[in-house]
Design a protein around this nucleic acid. Structure first.
Length: 390
RNA sequence: GCAUGGGUGGUCGAGCGGUCAAUGGCAGCGGGCUGUAAACCCGCCGGAUUAAUUUCCUACGUAGGUUCAAAUCCUACCCCAUGCA
């Protein structure tokens, strides 16, 4: 009993693989899509739906956002993010590293860490590898991410190299502080789990932007430090699409075969299929929920925009091939009306469908991998989605 | 009936002699969202025409008038609001 998580490959098809990931709180079949729940909620979607119908086994939380509000002290006092939110399945918490990128105008970066000017009230908030680990212990997530610097996708070689070196130093500091916290009582999510330590797991993050040599270096040095799983960061952050697939082609199957591979922040349905095909096991992305809130619908026939006038009297479901509860009951016409009328239910229902679609898509890739037919499925899917019959 | 204030593009509402096809808001139409500062952001929005920030047409209640020039000034009429009878 030395592991905090356990991951085993259950089938392989080319570079793609299925696996079973066991955390102290849930069993997760991979490839898996993890809905994003930045502020302790998957926006617009009740946990009941995530549990009962969608059967999501793991969702995200965000260190930066929960650090600012309500703050780690409140969450600790309320028993950790699981108890606080009532989400009792697995949580993966991002370290705040992405906010180093997305809030670039609001932060100052140094060797020590990052000083943010809070986007909420302008006050100064300091995040470092150590603080991030402490906050994530207070949150009590199953999977903790190292605090990294995520450079823009089109960053030059030298800039990327510097960033990568900093991220590696931060990775080491993250791990050191993480290890200390695991032997103290800091982790609010501790629970006994059969065959597992019941403690948190820590994932390292490979950076290097579009530079393959730097990706190699980042991978080698990150693995050398040693983590429970490895993530690919710094993609889908402004670079051209071929760059992302190129990096995945190059790096994904060089990553440790016996640990889950997590592509951070990606992506579109096409991206997921392409990345699974290249050997990635885990994903998260705001797209299904954010686009859902703004009228974007993902379907097995491609994307559609519920705002479009063509749906005014369309009595078909959002996706004719989707068995989700939204598609079983509501028409495009009605959902368009809700959206146009500014009714919040539109956001909820479309987000729900989109998540159902994403999770179904992952289920589908798993079954195709097990059947050894992923390549065929991939080609068929990409063609269908791009043709967009609707 | 008298008095006063109004009638502007789908709508509400600015403009009050030229730079006005006419500011804004809303509605409408379209696009974008990739480890969430996003229930958000960006375009278009009288008609036709062009390679074009091109040219033309129709428009500021109706009809006349003044002026080189009118949504803007004058006259009459119609309608609306409020007040007084």
């Amino acid at each position: 009993m030395t592991k905090s998580i356990d991951w085993v490959v259950t089938a392989q098809d080319g570079r793609a693989r299925t696996g079973t990931l066991r955390t102290r709180r849930s069993i997760i079949e991979t490839p898996v899509f993890m809905p994003v729940g930045t502020q302790g909620t998957v926006k617009g979607v009740r946990f009941e739906w995530l549990e009962d119908e969608l059967d999501a086994r793991i969702i995200l939380g965000n260190t930066y956002h929960l650090f600012l509000r309500p703050g780690p002290d409140v969450i600790r006092e309320m028993g950790g993010l699981h108890k606080f939110s009532t989400w009792d399945r697995s949580l993966l918490t991002d370290s705040g590293g992405f906010q180093v990128f997305s809030l670039t105008d609001l932060r100052k970066l140094s060797e020590e860490g990052v000083e943010f000017r809070s986007h909420l009230d302008g006050s100064k908030k300091f995040l470092s590898p150590e603080v991030s680990m402490e906050v994530q212990a207070a949150l009590g997530s199953e999977i903790v991410m190292v605090f990294d610097e995520c450079p823009p996708g089109d960053a030059g070689h030298e800039r990327t190299k510097q960033s990568l070196d900093l991220t590696l130093r931060w990775a080491k500091r993250s791990k050191d502080r993480f290890d200390e916290l695991q032997v103290s009582a800091a982790d609010t999510g501790a629970v006994s789990a059969d065959g597992l330590t019941g403690k948190q797991a820590l994932f390292g993050i490979i950076q290097g932007a579009g530079h393959l040599d730097l990706r190699d270096e980042s991978l080698a040095r990150t693995v050398e430090i040693g983590f429970d799983g490895y993530a690919i960061g710094g993609l889908s952050v402004g670079e051209e699409k071929p760059v992302m697939y190129g990096v995945l082609d190059h790096i994904a199957n060089k990553m440790p075969v016996d640990a889950p591979r997590y592509l951070m922040g990606v992506g579109t349905p096409e991206d997921l299929v392409e990345a699974v095909y290249r050997g990635v096991d885990m994903f998260d992305c705001v797209m299904p929920t954010r686009n859902g809130r703004t009228g974007g619908v993902f379907t097995w026939q491609g994307k559609l925009n519920i705002r479009n006038a063509q749906f005014i009297t369309d009595d078909k479901p959002l996706d004719v091939d989707c068995p989700c509860s939204v598609c079983r009951r509501y028409s495009r016409s009605y959902l368009r009306h809700l959206y146009q009328a500014g009714e919040m239910l539109a956001a909820t229902l479309i987000s729900h469908h989109n998540l159902a679609f994403y999770l179904d898509l992952m289920r589908r890739t798993r079954s195709e991998i097990k059947a050894g037919t992923l390549e065929f499925f991939r080609r068929d899917f990409l063609e269908r989605v791009s043709n967009s019959e609707k």
